[in-house]
Design a protein around this nucleic acid. Sequence first.
DNA 1: TTTGATATTAACAAATTATTAAACAGCACA
DNA 2: TGTGCTGTTTAATAATTTGTTAATATCAAA
Lengths: 228, 228
Amino acid sequence: MSTAKQKILVVDDEPDIVELIAYNLKREGYQVHTASNGQEAVSTAKKIMPDLIILDVMMPKMDGIEACRIMRAMPEFKSTFMVFLTARSEEYSEIAGFNVGADDYIAKPIKPRALLSRINAILRRNAHSEELPNEKLEIADLVIDREAFLVFKDGEKIVLAKKEFELLYLLASKPGKVYTREVILKNIWEDSVVVTNRTIDVHIRKLREKIGENYVSTVKGVGYKFEA
Amino acid sequence: MSTAKQKILVVDDEPDIVELIAYNLKREGYQVHTASNGQEAVSTAKKIMPDLIILDVMMPKMDGIEACRIMRAMPEFKSTFMVFLTARSEEYSEIAGFNVGADDYIAKPIKPRALLSRINAILRRNAHSEELPNEKLEIADLVIDREAFLVFKDGEKIVLAKKEFELLYLLASKPGKVYTREVILKNIWEDSVVVTNRTIDVHIRKLREKIGENYVSTVKGVGYKFEA
DNA sequence: TTTGATATTAACAAATTATTAAACAGCACA
DNA sequence: TGTGCTGTTTAATAATTTGTTAATATCAAA
């Protein structure tokens, strides 16, 4: 197992609960981050890339279910664990019905012992895969290594800027699929940031400049796609 | 996210509210249609078959509840989502008491963020096909891949322009069914855009030019249909 | 044959993306 | 605290594709 502390993002609008959970998780040796609503959760998660996210269901601005859905739709959170915090009154089945890709549910009121054993179990399950060779995306003659933030084109290293990388990673995560500008914006930019549509073009151009012209193709009026 | 725009019909007699909602939904990537009373709502809905209908409760001619009842009674709207717009003064429970088959309620005054998160949640619940292995339409010797925005004719790739593709996709989504010009316009063009009838002919022609003459047939005086 | 359609074509208009250069922001480092 | 990077965004313009119109030809049914 890697010695790096595993990161957990705790999201709840009640500071007391956040603190309670954070305290216990830290004592257990995890690196804990917090957010107080769904929006914040999404933007923080993008930054720190936690191994696990604990989401309260009911929150202002954006509830946990919505936040979960949004993140699940982003390729980089494909394998991030997400756990819901539910008040007793909210039936599990009801939540589960949203079918949003949660990995577990934890009932309030929080019982620290139970919480820890649950979290430990989930992350241990995961710990094995940490040992596995670094998840790389190999496609056409490119190797896209998210962990190292590098791209190799038949063995030759290509250094991309962050946005360029994210763009490539997104498109390449489902080759052939056309990504609209809207979707691209939602995935790569913070919700709050508003940028011109032209901004995407420019990044596409720089990306093409670096990796070559034969990977990203334009579908006029629709968007861009990865296509070898 | 599936690239097929989901269709939403917004029904309210106050143009300002319709505009506010339509603006926000469009920005979010939905295809928006409007109507200003229940009667109009029912007839428009039949034409465009929206994925979701937002109905104001209080309207002239036919109120939202009545419209909802009527549509729910029609088999083709069995699984269409319907959401009511209610003024604060109207108690939810009161509305709910009508038990008419609504999926949600949204309170006025409209708060764009809340509205969007609600609508997104409802529609995404439905569209978990996103994760599924790319939904293709296979018909006759054509494969119509909406995600890649491509058509294959016995293995050979055919690139269509956006409108051509939409046209083919619409017709092929229900082979044999005749689509009137009116319905085609409502489905493929924005509500606001008005184009000549001849415009459709031209697109049909270009489509036939690219995929061949044996797929789209004309029903004179009525419209077009897909027929192998 | 007349009439009310649709088909066809080419010219034109509109919309979208590409390209370039320059402004701007953040950061590491002297 | 400035200075020079790197990376990001904007803005302006060019290039290209796509969409629309209009005019004419053709067709099919009454």
